[in-house]
Amino acid sequence: MIEDEYYEEDEAPRQPPLYLLTGLVIGLLLGLLISLVIAPVQVVDTSPFLLGEEEKDAYRLLIARAFQADQNLERARARLGLLRDSAMPQTLADQALRMQSHGGSEADIRALAELAAALSSPQSAASTQPAGLPTAPPGGEGENAGTPQTFPTLDLNQAVQTATPPPTPTSPPPTPRPTFTPRLLPTPLPTLGAPFDLVEQNAICETAQTPPRLMIEVQDSSGNPVPGIAITVAWDGGIETFYTGLMPSLGAGYADFDMQAGVVYSLRVGELSETINDLQAPACSEGEAAFTGSLRLLFRQR
């Protein structure tokens, strides 16, 4: 009898420790509330590549304006490297186009176009990073990329320096060594105020070229492409301004515009150049097929 009672008690269903689980869940929710809502992580000492898109645009623009001021391409390249864009010239050109569509300042658009063109020019690609100009910032550039790091104090031995390296001592070392790369003037800048003349005009009759385009190349007096030049196209019922150098892959002085068949356009390059009138997409034919071609204009500075 005693044994039976013992077994009955033992076989009674056990209650799971629900109170423990409930406590754990309540604690977890409380912890998440604290860490994500009430007191989220306060990030300090971030790198430029972690900035928001708007801030990155502002940073890029600042780099472009600084490049316009000092023409130091290596410094601009080092600064842009901090943003970690894989296709930097295109990013700059895209930003310029965005600004153009939003009515941004002409000086800003021009600065971006000039830097995009300078970065994609062959002379720029051939240049190498000068010694003593570190571009890789500490932390965030290596394995921990993408994770914001908190640095309680600035480690000056590791800190990024995009500024010019200090001058070398006056007494030269026994073996001459290159200590710096001279400043590059990668793309010619137009002489302000000098007008551009139309030197060449060709009809391009290629069936693959759709829609018909007004393709413009702008050169300086020596025949080098010039980026950042405003081109204004007007037609009956419309006017548009765009800039050279926003398609770096097609050349620093290149710009184009989609034309409509049968519409007559006027065009002006820069501020003081003569207006070119009566521009139309040419009528082309290949065999019996007729189509509308494109127009290529070459302008050179006087």
Binding site: G23, D45, L50
Partner: peptide, 28 residues
């Protein structure tokens, strides 16, 4: 539970990992 939640929120999965404003940049 609270410790686990805080560890997750502060350490493993912070609310914001990019898109920071300019004032958060490091001094250099």
């Amino acid at each position: 539970g609270a410790a686990a939640g805080i560890f997750y929120g502060w350490g493993l999965h912070p609310a914001q990992t990019s898109g920071f404003p300019l004032h958060t940049l490091r001094a250099d």
